[in-house]
Design a binder for these strands. Structure first.
Ligand SMILES: [Zn+2]
Ligand SMILES: [Zn+2]
Ligand SMILES: [Zn+2]
Ligand SMILES: [Zn+2]
Lengths: 151, 151
DNA sequence: ATGCTAATTGATACTTGATATCAATTGATA
DNA sequence: TATCAATTGATATCAAGTATCAATTAGCAT
């Protein structure tokens, strides 16, 4: 009888592993529950640092399982390690703040419709797509306004 | 009086470096002219292999200059080194064959219009975007058709 | 509950991609 | 041609991530 709040999200990530026939281990519980506590996107190395009790290999392996299960999305960062974030809806895209790196999610039906319509103009079979919007996030905008030279 | 075919492209990449106030050196000439001979996208390591006479550091540095100059685009590959391709038009996106990795370019005004319209629905200021379409390219489609089990 | 066995773990070594260092070289200009 | 800052590239180092494999453990059968 799952009563749901913070706990239930935790169960979800572990469930994603269950569903793949993977065993419930304390290492996997530590990784998944830590991921759920992080609100922003994170890197693998960051998780390793925050979970010194779990081996690097296990952190990387668990992340890979979660990505394979579709529970995490892996977000390429051009000048650094990929970031991961919980996939809360099936298909979505990301916003990335160019200044602070904060990651957000969005879904937009028009975008999807246009992407589908591209099939006619592109050679080969479309099998998927990826899209990132680079932004200056509100908190970075606020920070730069208050820090302006005009005092 | 630039008469233009293959040669003229070569001049362009070197020019991109000139325009940044960088010196013309034989190493840079080797790197830029090799890049122009490659029709597909390439990785930095691939260039190093193909230019054993040029030091790794110089290959990486020259690529970075070209990217900074906007003459090359850097394309994130989730499970490997980024690929580079000559930026033939100002703003464009890429197709990537999931099977063989072949990279293509496209531009589509509707896509750009939709991206612009997203501003209203996204928190913060949009400063750019990136998009990749994953495909199975025609040659991979042909290969899989001829290699089918019914053969 | 106990034992069995395959799955899992994690320390270590390694691979790959890329950057920092810095003495030697070279391009541009006077 | 002399000068000197820019450039080069061998080397060391760093960073991200994977392979190995002996030790441990989860899940199941009894
Ligand atoms: Zn920000
Ligand atoms: Zn989409
Ligand atoms: Zn292909
Ligand atoms: Zn665009």
């Amino acid at each position: 009888m799952a009563t749901a709040t913070t706990e239930s999200i935790s169960v979800n990530l572990i469930n994603a592993l269950d569903d793949r026939g993977l065993r419930r281990t304390s290492a996997r519980a530590a990784v998944t529950s830590r991921i759920e506590q992080i609100s922003d996107a994170f890197t693998a190395e960051q998780l390793c640092r925050e979970l010194p009790g779990v081996g690097r290999a296990t952190v990387y392996r668990t992340i890979r399982h979660l990505v394979d299960a579709g529970a995490l999305c892996k977000l390429p960062i051009l000048d650094g390690a990929p970031k991961y974030s919980i996939a809360r809806v099936e298909h979505h895209h990301h916003t990335i703040c160019s200044r602070c790196g904060a990651v957000g999610e969005f879904r937009h039906s028009t975008v999807e419709r246009v992407m589908r319509s591209l099939g006619k103009e592109i050679d080969g079979d479309i099998v998927g797509h990826r899209m990132e919007i680079f932004i200056t996030c509100n908190s970075c905008l606020a920070a730069s306004r208050s820090g302006e030279s005009g005092g």
